[in-house]
Amino acid sequence: SSYVCVECNFLTKRYDALSEHNLKYHPGEENFKLTMVKRNNQTIFEQTIN
Rank of each mutant, 00 (worst) to 15 (best):
S2F: 04
S2K: 07
Y3Q: 02
V4G: 09
V4F: 13
V4Q: 09
V4M: 13
C5G: 00
C5S: 01
C5R: 00
V6W: 01
V6A: 08
E7N: 11
E7M: 07
E7A: 10
E7D: 11
N9L: 09
N9C: 04
N9T: 09
N9E: 04
N9H: 13
F10N: 04
F10V: 03
L11K: 11
L11I: 04
L11M: 12
L11A: 07
T12N: 12
T12G: 07
K13Q: 11
K13S: 14
K13G: 10
R14I: 15
R14K: 07
R14M: 15
R14S: 15
Y15S: 14
Y15A: 04
Y15M: 13
Y15W: 05
D16F: 14
D16R: 07
D16A: 13
D16W: 09
D16T: 10
A17D: 15
A17V: 13
A17K: 13
A17E: 14
L18F: 02
S19N: 13
S19V: 05
S19C: 10
S19A: 03
E20P: 06
E20S: 14
E20Y: 03
H21N: 00
H21R: 00
H21Y: 00
N22C: 03
N22Q: 02
K24M: 07
K24R: 08
Y25N: 13
H26W: 01
H26E: 02
H26R: 00
H26G: 00
H26P: 00
H26F: 03
P27C: 05
P27S: 10
P27D: 04
G28A: 09
G28K: 13
G28Q: 13
G28I: 02
E29C: 09
E29R: 11
E29Q: 10
E29Y: 03
E30H: 10
E30T: 11
E30Q: 15
E30P: 06
N31A: 06
N31T: 09
N31G: 12
F32D: 06
F32C: 14
F32I: 15
K33A: 09
K33M: 03
T35E: 13
T35F: 03
T35G: 09
M36A: 12
M36E: 15
V37W: 03
V37F: 06
V37T: 06
K38D: 06
K38A: 08
R39I: 05
R39E: 12
R39M: 10
R39Y: 03
R39V: 09
N40T: 11
N40R: 04
N41F: 03
N41Q: 12
N41L: 06
N41W: 02
Q42F: 04
Q42R: 08
Q42N: 14
T43D: 15
T43S: 15
T43C: 11
T43K: 12
I44D: 12
I44T: 08
I44F: 08
F45A: 14
Q47T: 01
T48N: 06
T48A: 10
I49D: 15
I49E: 13
I49Q: 04
I49G: 05
N50T: 03
N50H: 08
